[in-house]
Amino acid sequence: MARAATARAIRPAVRDTAHDGFLTHRNSRWLKIALGLMLFAVLVYALTDAEPRANGGSVAGYLLGTIGALLIVWLSSLGLRKRIVTRGPYSLKGWTSAHVWLGLSLIVVGTLHSGFQFGWNIHTLAWALMMVVILSGLYGIIVYARLPAQLSANRQETTQPQMLEAIRALDRQIDTAAQPLAAAETALVRLSLEKTSIGGNLWQRLSGNYAGDGNGRALAAIQAEVDGQRRAGRPDPALTQILFLLERKAAALAQARRHIGLRARLELWLYLHVPATFALLAALTAHVVSVFLYW
């Protein structure tokens, strides 16, 4: 209890406060390494003279193949690294940076390893799957570079649960406001309340085209009715109130749908990238085993 206790000036853990994205992490360190690796692969390919022609079975071919296979296995471990939160220093941003640039360098390493020998076999399947993975990843980089700013601008400081809650709140208000309406008009309002799916199906999410959804139809029909009443004289105030609420709901839906659409585009490519990676790992195994079995 009473012994001396010293308040030490413990240095806070070293942390990355640099404000740069994963592409330029640490002065584009991994871009430089990847360029070096590609240069190395090209030099190996150009300077060795395999007989009868360049192929995966030559010394240079084995070298590039080993590098490529190890890279593929390591690159696929990002999924694991992302989910394991260890206590020591690491930077997932650094991992992503390396993943992106080394992954892109595989285009050169893998293709040169093949010696441009393509055919209908397991070996070319492995190459093709690798290209699918890399190209889907390239698309992912483009999406990651362009969409976050749009996502942020569309959000306008509301969170996704808040957007959904705002729509539910409008639904409750519409429900209350529709009580004095006649049956035919109530049927229209029910379109908005019962036949509106916020997210819609995948196609709607990606295209942003929700034509014909319940709220849109209800809005158009009630708009037409109010316009008609306006021409005839004074519109029914209960109906104009509904119209106002449906318009607000349309705006809220549009925001939520843009949000969901952007989220979908940010994630969708992974549904190709990751399964293709597993297929690639299987094909790669088959490729390696078969090469050694049928030497």
């Binding site: 806070p12 942390r15 990355d16 406060t17 740069d20 994963f22 020591g88 690491y90 997932l92």
Partner: peptide, 21 residues
């Protein structure tokens, strides 16, 4: 994340470098 030698986990675990403390 006091006591974790890597510093704040939120920053470490950000894949794109968006989060900084």
């Amino acid at each position: 994340c006091a006591g974790q030698s890597g510093g704040p986990a939120c920053v470490r675990a950000c894949p794109t470098g968006a989060a900084i403390r």
